[in-house]
Nucleic acid binder design. Structure first.
Lengths: 334, 334
DNA sequence: TTGGATTAGTAAAACGTTTTACTTTATTGC
DNA sequence: GCAATAAAGTAAAACGTTTTACTAATCCAA
């Protein structure tokens, strides 16, 4: 069964295609179509269940009403929760989301940008990685709305929404020091993105400001794409071989691995060993004792992202770029 | 800067649009285009960075190379992990995923189906809810490939992939009974989908087969869309007011709420109180003691879904519907 | 040398919309 | 009673592809 076209409706109503189009698009009044005709056509549309072909519409208008979302990995709860919030808000304004995960591969990210481009998405929401600068620049030159979130690329001049990672990390370390900790480790990843680097910088700066010597042996950089078993054995080594009384995990999945290690080697979190995880996770609240975390303001990030992008979409002219840095919150649990 | 069209390439190469099209689509040989022309055109395409407009392509061919994914909630880890796996496998075959969350609303689900329809997605992967039977039937009548996963709708005759919920639930209860438990509670939701109903049926049947009387006071049905605080207080009531020595949670997020209650009221899981959660979660492995769970075979579900749908997409004729029921695995932890 | 087959390529229709520029009829102001 | 204006509507081009049906030239066999 072929689906109906505007032509079928026009024939049924015995009017022109143009007239039907005007009515569908709410321009009937302004184009002076009579009330009688409007009613007749609307009735036929309702009865027949006709829905305009969005593809044809997109081809003609150049808009797709689709927003492309490029993230690292939809199965990571940080991204899936952001995605959900963004989807929600976009949906209410008539926009759909098409997403893809880059898995931190530059090639895949570039490919995705190209694919979105050829699909003529109306806007790009990207959690970027280094290496796609040129591609993003081209998007911007072509006049596409692009917004970064979570991570930023310093060379690119576009809007950005993210948490204040440096400060959050600094405060975490400061809270360790306030508890009298001296040997503070950092478990982070080796991916070279601003948001991760900032967490590292915050760590370093807090130590410095408190007159504690930075010791690179206490910083463990985990390779991004490796198996969890490998990660676990590396963390185990750190915990067993160094004299550590506190550790900051730069991502929640690293913290999860770390907690598994603690369980394995039967080391308890308590007065002589403190833990903070960056990015909250349900497991942390439930854990005994509760794991302190840096909570990223998901809702606010999503809200700002979509607000900025929708504003840009509804504006004829290019708006000023916005940089929104939202404070993260240190939640102390025990 | 306007993006390039096939026409621009044709002009530059001094050949017809048709010729360029044939070359792009790998039909050059079969349409007897000379090697020299092929090379010339390919060079120009590569140099100019031309990418065919997928929208125009879709309009003409009727295919979008997009698969629509309709789920309950992308931020739920079960769905986001499935989504990731599906995305991955689809991507390798040149298909993109466009997803939306229904939030368990029939209206939203219907709307989504319509939206996907008007976007001419090539196939539908749906975790369905009751109430959309008619809409799905129409899709099927129009010849669209549709596959259900996780949940099934008994009235609809289409392919389905899911776990064996009844059996998994039965076995969980059986394992409680084998441990000598007598007062076994079930915390489930009130959404009326097959997958949830089956878990309930398995609970009931296991009790019956073991000669234990079913007591409806031990079954708590949580309203789907309510606040977590409300859920927690209901579970608390159940735990405090009934004499219970084991509980099966029908979803992982209910189990999380339940564990929070246990922490609050300081009730320990151990010899006199056992817990099993349906659907695994990272928090469960980390928990002390570890929480036993029913693990759904995510990978296998995703693999079967995409295999069936891709097979259907590459076939000219309508293939036989397939029902794939995959056993779930009871993981006992302590 | 003729005429069927092959080679190399192209013109134009079609996909389903939106939108511009136009026509026809009715109404108004003077 | 006539020009100007408004009301009601439409024809056709355009968006960027794919694909069908076609042409023109060359080749080969009998």
């Amino acid at each position: 069964m072929k689906s109906l076209s505007i032509k079928d409706i026009a024939v049924k109503a015995n009017v022109s295609i143009t007239t039907v189009s005007f009515i569908i698009n709410g321009k009937a009044k302004e184009k002076s179509i009579s009330e009688a005709v409007i009613e007749k056509v609307e009735k036929i549309i309702a009865e027949s269940g006709y829905k305009p072909n969005q593809i044809a519409r997109s081809l003609r208008t150049g808009n797709s009403n689709i927003i492309g979302l490029i993230i690292e990995d939809i199965s990571n709860s940080f991204f899936s929760r952001i995605a959900r919030l963004i989807e929600d808000k976009a949906y209410k304004r008539g926009y759909k989301i098409i997403y893809s995960s880059t898995e931190n591969s530059v090639d895949k990210a570039k490919e995705l940008i190209n694919m979105f481009k050829s699909r003529k998405v109306d806007a790009y929401i990207i959690s970027p990685i280094k290496g796609i600068e040129e591609d993003v620049k081209m998007l911007l030159e072509d006049g596409n709305p692009v917004i970064f979130f979570d991570r930023n690329l310093p060379d690119i001049n576009t809007s950005y929404v993210g948490a204040d990672h440096l400060n959050a990390s600094y405060q975490s370390i400061q809270s360790f020091i306030d508890q009298g900790k001296k040997n503070i480790a950092l478990v982070t990843t080796d991916i070279n993105v601003e948001q991760i680097v900032e967490r590292y910088d915050g760590y370093k700066k807090a130590l410095e400001d408190n007159g504690i010597k930075y010791d690179e042996n206490l910083v463990l950089k985990i390779h991004f794409n490796q198996e969890e078993s490998e990660t676990i054995s590396q963390i185990k080594q750190l915990f067993e071989q160094k004299n550590i009384d506190a550790v900051l995990f730069a991502t929640n999945y690293l913290a999860i691995s770390g907690l598994k290690v603690l369980k394995q080697i039967n080391k308890k979190i308590g007065d002589d060993f403190a833990v903070i995880a960056y990015d909250d996770h349900e497991a942390f609240e439930l854990h005994t004792p509760g794991i302190s975390t840096v909570q990223q303001p998901l809702e606010e990030i999503a809200e700002n992202v979509i607000k900025i992008i929708l504003k840009q979409l509804s504006s004829k002219t290019k708006l000023e770029n916005q940089q929104v840095i939202i404070p993260a919150k240190l939640i102390i649990r025990d």
